[in-house]
């Protein structure tokens, strides 16, 4: 394994809805990842990607997104829960890649205006991660009542999320290191 190459862990903001409340949690987790030694990150807002909607799958790759996924050792997906599911455009974006994801780690940050913090959308997400070749971790972050977790400027109001994010990121980094070693060094028998 190349020790000189830092881990790459991009954060995907998975909604394009106007007035979206997921942008504050995405910015928060992005800053927490950026503060880790040996890790590089970027915030990918799916609203800024150039993906057509009259086709789907790998035929419509956005170079910025697919190159970020290729560089990635792990991804963090910040998703709201809309009607118990995740945004269709987030699935549309994720479906534009495949080989770029395989044997890489994934963590999910759920966001909801209600009390459950996206627990239902996270459960719905797990089989999709598996089919994409991503390896999910057992820590999530649940931003329930998100409108109370941040002030209008995006300042975090509940410091408990800092401790939770620390555990979540720590587990994701461990999985990312292990899977990088496997991708680099362990041949398929």
């Amino acid at each position: 394994m190349s020790e000189t190459r830092p881990l790459s862990i991009p954060v995907i903001l998975g909604t394009t809805r106007k007035g979206r409340m997921s942008s504050h949690p995405a910015q928060f987790i992005f800053e927490e990842v950026r503060n880790r030694d040996g890790v590089v990150t970027e915030l990918i807002d799916i609203a800024t990607l150039n993906l057509v909607v009259d086709d789907a799958g790998e035929a419509i790759k956005d170079p910025r997104f697919s190159e970020a996924m290729e560089r990635a050792d792990a991804v963090i997906i910040v998703t709201p829960e809309y009607n118990h599911g995740f945004p269709g455009l987030l699935k549309h974006v994720l479906d534009s890649c495949l080989k770029e994801y395989i044997h890489k780690a994934a963590g999910i940050v759920g966001v909801s205006a209600g009390p459950f913090g996206g627990t239902r959308v996270i459960e719905n997400f797990l089989p999709i991660l598996r089919e994409l070749g991503l390896v999910s971790i057992f820590w999530d972050i649940n931003f329930g009542n998100v409108q109370k977790a941040f002030d209008p400027s995006g300042r975090l109001l509940d410091e408990a999320y800092v401790r939770h994010a620390d555990k979540f990121i720590g587990e994701l980094i461990w999985m990312a290191k292990v899977l990088r070693y496997g991708r680099d060094q362990v041949p398929l028998q």
């Binding site: 395989i102 044997h103 362990v186 041949p187 398929l188």
Partner: peptide
Amino acid sequence: NKHAEKPVTLTTYEIILAIYCCPNCGKVE
């Protein structure tokens, strides 16, 4: 390093993708 063989169902048929990783630069093929 070939680290995976992934079955993929396309619109009309199923294939297997062999996945390779470069241990030096991280390139995926």
